[in-house]
Design a protein around this nucleic acid. Sequence first.
DNA 1: GAAGAATATGAACAATGTTCACATAGCGCA
DNA 2: TGCGCTATGTGAACATTGTTCATATTCTTC
Lengths: 210, 210
Amino acid sequence: MQQANRKTYHRGNVRDDLVIAARDVLHNEGLAALSLRRVAREVGVAPSAVYNHFRNREALLAAVAADGYRQLSRLERDSYDGTQRSPEVLLTLSRRYLRFASENPSLYRLMFSPEVVDYRTDPELAEAGESSFGLSVDWWYGQGAYAATPRAREHPLALSVWAIMHGLAMQVIDGLVSINRNDSAALDRLAEQTMQTLIQGLEEPLSKKP
Amino acid sequence: MQQANRKTYHRGNVRDDLVIAARDVLHNEGLAALSLRRVAREVGVAPSAVYNHFRNREALLAAVAADGYRQLSRLERDSYDGTQRSPEVLLTLSRRYLRFASENPSLYRLMFSPEVVDYRTDPELAEAGESSFGLSVDWWYGQGAYAATPRAREHPLALSVWAIMHGLAMQVIDGLVSINRNDSAALDRLAEQTMQTLIQGLEEPLSKKP
DNA sequence: GAAGAATATGAACAATGTTCACATAGCGCA
DNA sequence: TGCGCTATGTGAACATTGTTCATATTCTTC
């Protein structure tokens, strides 16, 4: 379906088409099926043409990952206007985060696979990644704090918030939790439950249960 | 160095040699360098010989991952005798867990890359993985609970414990935290700090800090 | 010592990432 | 308009990879 307007030799939007096609293949068939040649085939272009738009296969995958980060970042900004600093914000955020991961498992995994896509060699990816990590820091310090002091990201609490969400997402994606990934209500419950555990801590439940 | 005792046509321990060589290549050069042919070369054996010991490349990687799980499991059992159910156990466990991940980043990542090694198709991997996940559940329910009720793994608290540790490990491995991966004292502090956050919860610090 | 299982080999195949020489289209400028 | 420069496309080629197959060697067992 991709190779529709193949009337001219030059067609103008190959770069975007490649990223979209790569994203589709990744989503439908997983990382193993995501070869450079496959994507080129999907778009209806010669394999070598890809190199006019990306340095190599890795750079193409990085573009897909960067796209994912932007999507995630948008989702986060939608959940948090930067003013109200309440636990409810965290709960909302956790729900949407887990949904995103569940709905895009292969993409989510790719985004956190530095052996495939390397932050250090791809500025676009680095920037997109940065912006999506900043939210929990902003939430803690106040709006804009992340941009102001990049190191603030390493505040133990901000770090814990993201760590537990990422860990949870991995468990769900990898099928370590027996939950139907399409049951969004169950996913929401799981996200809230987990974030609530972090908010309340373990001490009280620990002293109660035998 | 591997191909020392290459005196006989049949040499008896090729399977183990393959796993060891694969583990070394993974450790020293990362997943990208870990090809079946490369491992065969390292051991001093023809590529096709590998298929006498493993179904395919994936099965070889799964054996490496399973080895990692067993190591992790051993480390966990050493940290916890199954009786004392105190926060201190969690702190000890978190330190060792983070150290393991930091010292074996590529291996750790492989262990949690189901797109490369699939639990569902490899019984050895599944078993090794199971046993290493059980600890936080045992800690919560009491010794042996995990084996008794496999579903107990999904207890929200046990799940949170592992999630936050895994998330933290990923952050360190992927360089998202500016910490020297060889500075084990700093790693220990980070692990304790994070686990302490989970134990105490966010409510109190949240109400204090402006 | 011979039979059969286990384990090794080398040749072959398709697929992949990448490079290169070359072809064509779009664009700015005489 | 036409000319050339640059961007973008093509197809052929190459090394490497995972995998299979026919074949050879060794080990084990009787």
